[in-house]
Write a protein that binds this DNA or RNA. Structure first.
Lengths: 238, 238
DNA sequence: TATACCATTTTGGGATACCAAGCCGGTATC
DNA sequence: GATACCGGCTTGGTATCCCAAAATGGTATA
């Protein structure tokens, strides 16, 4: 929330056929997910307007869409960047468990294991030289792509939306190398079970992975809550 | 899609503090769900504007929200009332199965059975004198309220949104008395299992109910497809 | 008759003007 | 000094205007 992107925006718009609304929506989403605007921070339509060099019409459209994604919320008459809500994170984990397990069971029941290799390659693309931001992205895309394999559009969207809501919290999470390694091992174990068409194992491993991730995430954020609030990030307790 | 509601709208607005946007959104949603505008029909912002006596700003906001509900869709540059899509109905059933079963398992694991009575009372409120429209609404609310019992906001919203998408198709479905009776019996059996805290039974019964409903629904619509299209309703095959 | 082409209209996207409600700061009063 | 009040300023909600692109329809030509 520091320098003006209007010029950059205008330039990038030249190259693509992207509408102002899509532009504002995408950039504002990136700012929120990238924590360039803090959870709980107030937003005014006029500030966004000036920041991105667009008028209020596309700004309002973007806000309405981001509201349905849970990234911004109405605050009385105005707008707020949604706070991190620990109770919500726990509920999302339950939701994820339901839809991701259903998706992976579907995938196991189909005979197509070739797409699993693509996902495994995604995991392989991360090594000790990979920036943390990339690990973060791949860790989310793993689950999204896994759900995509099921071929069910609704399960896919559910997982994608859930991961979007989790994104900022996962980024704030204090994770050590060991935790990342464990997560990757669990991801690989899930893929292995799918390759064997073993739905029960895959479901059990995925379920445990989601529950474990939730516990680590909520614990980490609850411990860091004071520090996060000091940085201006609203973190609502469970 | 025949007479002008602008005056009625203005009058109803007087009594409540509802904004134009909420007004347009609610009324347009009711028109779509009530099949007053047919699936597949083209919508123009200007027509909606004139119809509800609101300017384009709230109209556009309403369309954006209804788009995320899946009730309207972009059609190139314009808008369309979403067609009935049999493939989508089948995918929604899979999605419902995942989230509703998860919700009912959660509910069974809690010790509160008192709320079940409220839902049972809902079912009881329908008898041979009840208009079909009411059966239709209660049949949907049963599932929505059941998910609400879980206490998980995301499972609840998922079921509510899924039922919203199914609403028009269920309304078009040709259902005999016997089918309705069977559905109600299945609903009651599910509640009975929940009362006993028997999660496995509840899950199995609910799952079978959803799959059975889907089969009857898709079969009915596929058989009626020609007739429905003749009535101007776009029905996309599976 | 079929088709390519052009003028006109329609339509969604965006920008802007206006308004009422709420917020904030200052001031006067107790 | 605290507080109640008031006036201006900010802000979201709405209406309206403009524009480019797409649809439409009529016409001329092959």
């Amino acid at each position: 929330m520091n320098f003006n992107l209007a010029a950059v925006n205008a330039a990038s718009q030249k190259g693509s056929a992207m509408s102002q609304m899509q532009n504002v929506e995408r950039q504002l989403r990136e700012m929120i997910l990238g924590l360039e605007v803090g959870p709980g921070e107030k937003l005014t339509e006029r500030w966004i307007e000036g920041r991105f060099g667009a008028s209020r019409t596309p700004v309002r459209a973007a806000l309405l869409r981001l509201e349905t994604e849970g990234l911004v919320a109405r605050d009385g008459r105005g707008w707020t960047v949604s706070p991190i809500n620990l109770a919500e994170l726990e509920q999302i984990a339950v939701y994820r468990e339901a839809v991701e397990v259903a998706a992976v069971r579907l995938t196991c029941s189909s005979a197509d294991t070739s797409a699993v290799d693509v996902i495994e390659a995604m995991l392989d693309s991360c090594d000790e030289n990979t920036p943390r931001e990339e690990w973060h992205r791949v860790g989310m895309d793993f689950h999204i792509e896994l759900a995509h394999l099921s071929g069910n559009e609704f399960l896919f969207r559910a997982v994608r939306d859930a991961m979007t809501r989790l994104s900022r919290a996962r980024w704030l999470e204090v994770r050590d190398e060991a935790a990342l390694g464990r997560a990757w091992a669990e991801h690989r174990a899930i893929l292995a079970a799918i390759r064997l068409g073993n739905a029960e194992d895959a479901a059990r491993l995925l379920s445990a992975h989601i529950v474990g991730s939730r516990d680590r995430l909520v614990t980490s954020l609850a411990n860091d809550r004071r520090g996060l609030r000091a940085r201006g990030f609203a973190v609502v307790a469970a």
